Amino acid sequence: MAKNNLTTVTEFILMGFTDYPKLEIPLFVMFLSFYLVTLLGNVGMIILIQVDVQLHTPMYFFLSHLSLLDACYISVIIPQILVTLAKGKMVISYGQCAAQFFFFTICAATECFLLAVMAYDRYVAISKPLLYTVAINPRICWSLVVVAYVCGMLGAILRTTCTFTLPFCDNNQINFFFCDLPPLLKLACIDTTSTEIVIVFFGNFVILANALVILISYLLIIKAIWRVKSSGGRTKTFSTCASHLTAVALFFGTLIFMYLRSGSGKSPEEDKVVSVFYTVFIPMLNPLIYSLRNKDVKVAFRKVTGRFQGSRSM
């Protein structure tokens, strides 16, 4: 049944966490802390990779772009959450909502493609070490990254166009803390089945296609590692993939849980919790995952901090 369409929506009200007014100050402090830690970690990782020559390899080149995406990702979402918590609710114009949705989708889709590229990079490094510098040269690195960004942008254009060409009428309260797809579709005046089919098909394709690339890459990696004679050599070789595997499991696990599960079992509060995890926690955790489990990053960090302390003591 069509919704009341007498009034066309020109702005939305983000309700955020209005159901928990007593938690607004603690949540504000928590999200602000997460935001600062995430920016420090990701920007710090980018700077570290740029200044240390030992990290000028394809793996860290891709990691620097992952950190850039995570910093942009969280900057699209967290400031909006902070304003919503400070005011209790947030009025956002139609154009601002569409822009937030567009940039959020670019970051999420591009990260999917980039994680697949990083899995392919690990496969070439482990399976064909002698050809690695030829197969993954700087030109190939840039080509793969550009393809990831272009695919992410095309996906964002498709999803944003499909979503914001829908008529939104009368009810303009979004029971969420940013402009995401599920709560926006609930406000449409018309039946959104055909739109959802297009959006869901594309979203599922992006997630599943990249997950398949990652799965095939790691099956080939395991096959290559199995040929290593010593168990110590196998462990050392596979350890180079541990950080990436952890990042993949966290990112794709939450995306699949959020967007690929059945709608019948969903609840707005559950969606909020899951969204906080993949929009806030994962961008914050990625620098920690890659620094705590990576000797090269630890060594580079000690060298850079040592130079900084040495320059201050002079």
Rank of each mutant, 00 (worst) to 15 (best):
S64H: 13
S64G: 12
S64K: 12
S64R: 13
S64E: 10
H65I: 06
H65K: 04
H65W: 04
H65Q: 03
H65C: 04
L66F: 06
L66K: 03
L66T: 05
L66A: 05
L66D: 06
L66W: 05
S67F: 12
S67V: 13
L68F: 00
L68A: 01
L68P: 00
L68H: 00
L68R: 00
L69V: 02
L69W: 00
L69A: 00
L69M: 01
L69I: 01
L69F: 02
D70P: 06
D70K: 09
D70Q: 11
D70M: 10
D70R: 05
D70T: 11
D70V: 09
D70L: 08
A71F: 02
A71D: 02
A71L: 03
C72D: 02
C72R: 02
C72I: 04
C72G: 04
C72P: 01
Y73C: 02
Y73F: 06
Y73N: 02
I74Y: 12
I74V: 11
I74L: 13
I74R: 09
I74M: 11
I74W: 12
I74F: 09
I74E: 12
S75Q: 04
S75W: 04
S75L: 03
S75F: 03
S75I: 03
V76K: 07
V76P: 05
V76E: 03
V76S: 09
V76H: 05
V76Q: 07
I77V: 14
I77L: 10
I77Q: 14
I77P: 08
I78R: 09
I78S: 11
I78A: 12
I78L: 11
I78W: 11
I78N: 11
I78K: 10
I78F: 07
P79V: 10
P79H: 11
P79L: 07
P79S: 10
P79C: 11
P79T: 06
Q80G: 04
Q80P: 05
Q80D: 03
Q80R: 07
Q80K: 09
Q80H: 08
Q80A: 06
I81K: 00
I81C: 02
I81S: 00
I81W: 00
I81G: 01
I81V: 01
I81R: 00
I81Q: 00
L82N: 02
L82D: 02
V83C: 08
V83F: 09
V83L: 12
T84Q: 08
T84K: 04
T84A: 08
T84R: 08
T84N: 06
T84I: 07
T84C: 10
T84E: 06
L85N: 07
L85R: 04
L85G: 09
A86M: 13
A86K: 13
A86D: 13
A86V: 14
K87A: 15
K87W: 14
K87E: 14
K87Y: 15
K87N: 14
G88S: 15
G88A: 15
G88H: 15
G88F: 15
G88I: 15
G88Q: 14
K89P: 13
K89Q: 14
K89V: 15
K89T: 15
K89E: 15
K89S: 14
M90E: 09
M90V: 08
M90W: 13
M90S: 08
V91P: 11
V91G: 11
V91I: 13
V91L: 13
I92W: 04
I92R: 03
I92E: 07
I92P: 06
S93C: 10
S93R: 09
S93M: 09
S93H: 07
S93D: 12
S93G: 13
